[in-house]
Design a protein around this nucleic acid. Structure first.
Lengths: 169, 169
DNA sequence: CAAAATTCGTAGGCTTATCTAACATTTTTT
DNA sequence: AAAAAATGTTAGATAAGCCTACGAATTTTG
């Protein structure tokens, strides 16, 4: 009884979003956002209410409880980390990245998510990688894996290395 | 009726594995591998059979049809790509990586999977990254994000760059 | 070869999540 | 304020998956 289904997580995420944007979450809007019938929403709201995640009174707007807010925030965070990785690093088109992040967010474990965050940060901050390295990856994707201009790339890398480390011992 | 559920994908994967290892897949072994009751297996086998993915005759071993084999191979490939990324790049412990790959494999889209493969290959083959860069990432994880020995790391990187590019124009 | 043990299938029930249809409440319009 | 429209709930059906319990088929063993 303690484990949240992917489905309820999705509802909570939508409520969080609607509350942020519209400052209230109405059942109709939840139904539209989820692409389901209103009856399904009522059903979900009852379950979320039972778990103490939302304040729910029939015929009224829904709001998140403090606990619901914490849970929603955690899910949104997972979503963001995955979306950023897919979009910024793998260069996946926004709609696809959005869609995939929406599915993966329910299944990735905390350790992997945490490490993925660190990995992304490391790529951007390590003098050996960074933005131009990522661009080199994009080029290599378009060139079907053959990275054709290594010398030039390495030259710009060396410049970056010098820049980044001029302040270090 | 055309879309495979995560569940059936898991069954197919287990059958594929048992067929590889034992050269046959018996219902009992499938039940054990999946951690479910035999009745659930019977149910799943009937569905897979209806879809033409397995050859199923009551009281006989199960085998994959050519179509089933193709589908299973695709799923196993997804699993492997995800596992390798989690384990080799993010350094996630084998059991956790295994477990997470098992869940994510049902939800990642083809484009992201394909690009993830390229990304992993690029990290290993680009002169600017490779094995020692990955080790630097691991150290930075243990040091809580502060990469302390940049100068030394950069030195070994430069050596690698020279090595890798000595044959290039 | 027949009894015992193992394996397999069927029947019926539970849960989650969805839908449609009908009914109830609230809001908007006239 | 009454009628119309929009919104929300309830009831009943469906589908996927799982379970237990029991009976059927196959294998193993004495």
């Amino acid at each position: 009884m303690d484990h949240m289904s992917s489905n309820l997580e999705d509802y909570l995420e939508v409520i969080f979003s609607l509350e942020s944007v519209n400052s209230e979450a109405r059942a109709k809007d939840i139904a539209d956002a989820m692409g389901v019938q209103r009856a399904s929403v009522t059903n979900a709201l009852q379950k979320l209410s039972q778990r103490g995640l939302i304040n729910y009174q029939p015929y009224n707007s829904v709001t998140l409880t403090p606990e619901g807010f914490r849970t929603a925030t955690r899910i949104v965070h997972r979503h963001k980390v995955l979306y950023d990785f897919l979009h910024t690093f793998l260069q996946i088109r926004p709609e696809v990245a959005e869609d995939t992040a929406c599915k993966l967010e329910h299944h990735i474990d905390d350790e992997s998510l945490e490490t993925l965050t660190k990995f992304a940060r490391f790529i951007m901050t390590c003098p050996r990688t960074g933005k131009d390295w990522l661009e080199a990856f994009t080029r290599s994707c378009n060139d079907r894996g053959t990275c054709t201009n290594c010398p030039e790339c390495i030259k710009s890398c060396l410049e970056r290395l010098d820049d980044k480390c001029s302040g270090q011992p």
